[in-house]
Amino acid sequence: MTMLEIKNLHAKIEEKEVLKGLNFKVNAGEVHAIMGPNGSGKSSFSKIIAGHPAYTVTAGEVLYEINFKMKNLLELSVDERAKEGVFLAMQYPIEVPGVSNFHFLQMSYNAVLKHHGSEEFSENDFRIFVKEKMKLLQMREDFLDRDVNVGFSGGEKKRNEILQMAVLSPRLCILDETDSGLDIDSLKIVGEGVNKLRSKNNAIILITHYQRLLDFIRPDFVHIYADGKIQQTGGPELALKLEKQGYDWLK
């Protein structure tokens, strides 16, 4: 079943055009990798899907499946998208001083539960729940008491993003350069964590410019992205070709 369908999407930030007719389709259960050179606008693409206010969509549409109907995602606010299962693991997670990771995760999770008419989790129940998720990512418990991303190393921040993903169990997960800043051990832990979160009901879009993340999370499709749109689509072998030959052969 189609989860996300993007048709001829154009978007700009300030006066700069960043998407120039992007077409893209994702079905439930699939993993897509989007690869492209630095500065090609891959991050812009992910922020537009999540609804970052700095971007303006000038043409095209983004359809997203909600309750078996394709809905116009662009009409939803940032938090509504999140509550409907769109999740962006950010390249540069933001620090929130004075707010504990635990409190933030609980608020976030309860906001989603409430949206779906479910009963909110008490502090105790949530603590049990979140500790299970932390095991998945081999995170220490004191992580919960620290302020959100404050004083975290680059790798800790990325792991924290995946923890949020594990807690919220979104349907459409976009991982924006989650591999950057991770050493090889962390990369393995994060990769395995993400694999455990894969299911036939969710879809994952990996944005990266290295093959190495794909050694851990095997994609169904690899897309080469440049100049505001997808230039070429293939299987995992396309990533290997990129690894060997770089992006120059595309030009």
């Binding site: 940032v78 938090d79 999140a82 999740f87 929130v96 976030s108 906001a111 949206h115």
Partner: peptide, 13 residues
């Protein structure tokens, strides 16, 4: 804007 976007993208209004 980025702080707000971050929190909102986790479901908080």
């Amino acid at each position: 804007e980025d702080q707000l976007f971050y929190l909102q993208s986790r479901g908080l209004n």
